[in-house]
Design a protein around this nucleic acid. Structure first.
Length: 491
RNA sequence: CGGGGUGUGGCGCAGUUGGUAGCGCGCGUCGUUCGGGACGACGAGGCCGCUGGUUCAAGUCCAGUCACCCCGACCA
């Protein structure tokens, strides 16, 4: 029977979990808070990785790899950084097990206690800056533009597949520069790169902005972010790029001699996106029938389902498919011909819809007679019958159209869900009745932000980069404010 | 860390006043089907989360324990 999916209207978070499970993206593992990313889900992540990796390299970055373990003492070097991460660190204290003297399996060998405990990286700034110290002496060693693809661990109390897991995959860029200007430029370059990626590849419109002090990365001078809006009206931080100033250079004593031979501290940035983007992808586009994947990230862009009564009919359909498939592949389109005889066409239709395959072609005896094929698109759930002749070109255009349509739809939704509030009452009403982003004046103090969060659960998602200056009064305190910021309930 | 819930074939579940475990899906074989999740016949598959207790007898009652999920507080 059908794989039942909870509808978005019934229970949005259950709908999300159903999709992740039933579309074979990921499942919970035997380890609390950690997920198993299944092949179909991982294939999407690999597409994200490939594209981002290409974009990083095009902007002059190179990949490297730093260790999973970080000596505990490194962590205490940068005060704000420790404070931010200390509460959620996994710690390695021993390096050996031994047979349980009582004969029940194995126990930690108390003899094997580490001199210095190791932290499992929640992020790698400390180990990296400790390493950069040895790499940097002169301005000629700069800039260093390194990215690493890695896993990190943050011991979260409450987890959700992809959106927040104890272990997750990500990339983290760590760059070192001779000047403040250059580091700031790098920070901005990356946030723009992330926004491009989110919009052009994931089809998710994002708002670029700066984090308030409360939301800033622990150890950063300034945190830039891209914020997306999910279909339930909650915001999701999709990526961050940090200007770290000289904080880590000072903590790890990383200095270079400039052109005048004077020693200066190095300027730094760090930036990352994670498997959380998988969650964003699901929640931004999908519907009650299953996933809706943008063609640019779909592991299978086109599926061909043959319809036949017997071997002879299948052979005839396959002969036509054999003509179409190479034409599609020649255009760089990934295609799957599903001639699995164990499943009926109807079953396959439902299954590929659940998995978000952008385009489905169905071909049967009726098509053979007329030289046609049925083309169904996932985003609109519409079908039309078209000539096989020239279908490759049609599909190439169709995929581009689907990519664009998905983005347009998400953009319209996002734009409809940014609302201005000018009074506290209006703010609260909009938040509970509509959700989405609320654009409002704020006095700029962490105290006010904290109070608003306490009373409404909404946080400042960002101060948009493109915000127009506008005199106003803080929605909460009534103090003067120079521009609006975006509030939302966030994941 | 609080509050709630669930542990029974691969998955989803039922199992009444205790009496020796069943249904759907899936799986295997065969046949008929095949343009929106097909049908029939036969078949395989279970230490009822774990430990202890009560009892002639425990999936069921009692105590303990572990795990996971959902909802909050903290966070990308």
């Amino acid at each position: 029977m059908a794989k039942e999916i909870t509808t978005r209207g019934d229970n949005y978070s259950q709908w999300y979990l159903d999709l992740v499970n039933k579309a074979d993206l990921a499942e919970n593992s035997a380890v609390r808070g950690c997920m198993v990313i299944k092949p179909y889900g991982y294939a999407i992540w690999e597409k994200m990785q490939a594209q981002l990796d290409k974009m990083f390299k095009e902007t002059g970055h190179v990949n490297a790899y730093f260790p999973l373990f970080i000596p505990k003492s490194f962590f205490s070097r940068e005060a704000a950084h420790v404070e931010g991460f200390a509460k959620e660190c996994a710690v390695v204290t021993h390096y050996r097990l031994k047979n349980d003297p009582d004969g029940k399996g194995v126990v930690v060998d108390p003899e094997a206690k580490l001199e210095e405990e190791l932290i499992i990286r929640p992020t790698s700034e400390t180990i990296i800056w400790n390493t950069y110290r040895n790499w940097i002496q002169s301005h000629r060693d700069l800039p260093i533009l390194i990215n690493q693809w890695a896993n990190v661990v943050r011991w979260e109390m409450r987890t959700r597949l992809f959106l927040r897991t104890a272990e997750f995959l990500w990339q983290e860029g760590h760059t070192a520069h001779a000047t403040r200007e250059e580091a700031v430029e790098e920070t901005l370059k990356i946030i723009n790169l992330y926004a491009d990626f989110a919009e052009k590849f994931m089809g998710i419109p994002v708002i670029k902005g700066i984090k308030s002090e409360n939301e800033r990365f622990a150890g950063a001078v300034e945190t830039y972010c891209i914020e997306g809006l999910m279909q339930d009206g909650k915001a999701l931080q999709c990526g961050t790029s940090h200007f770290l100033g000289q904080n880590f250079a000072k903590a790890f004593d990383v200095m270079f001699s400039n052109r005048e031979g004077v020693l200066e501290h190095v300027w730094a940035t760090s930036w990352g996106v994670s498997t959380r983007l998988m969650g964003a992808l699901v929640m931004a586009h999908s519907d009650d029938n299953g996933l809706v994947l943008p063609p640019n990230l779909a592991p299978i862009q086109v599926v061909i389902v043959p319809i036949y009564k017997n071997k002879e009919e299948l052979d005839r359909v396959s002969a036509v498919a054999d003509q179409i498939i190479p034409q599609l592949k020649a255009r760089g389109i990934s295609v799957k011909y599903d001639d699995n005889d164990n499943k009926k066409p109807g079953w396959k239709f439902a299954e590929y819809e659940l998995k978000g395959v952008p385009v489905r072609l169905a071909m049967g005896p009726r098509d053979l007679e007329k030289g046609t094929v049925e083309v169904a698109r996932r985003d609109t759930l519409t079908k039309e019958v078209l000539p096989v002749e020239g279908i490759d070109e049609v599909i190439e255009k169709l995929l581009a159209d689907i990519q664009e349509n998905i983005f347009r739809k998400a953009t319209a939704f996002r734009d409809e869900n940014i609302r201005k509030a000018d009074t506290w009452e209006e703010f609260k009403t909009l938040l509970t009745e509509k959700g989405g982003f609320i654009s409002a004046h704020w006095d700029g103090t962490p105290e006010t932000e904290a109070r608003i969060k306490e009373e409404t659960k909404a946080t400042i998602r960002c101060i948009p980069l493109d915000a127009e200056p506008e005199e106003g009064l803080c929605i909460y305190s009534g103090q003067p404010s120079a521009q609006r910021v975006l509030f939302a309930i966030a994941y």
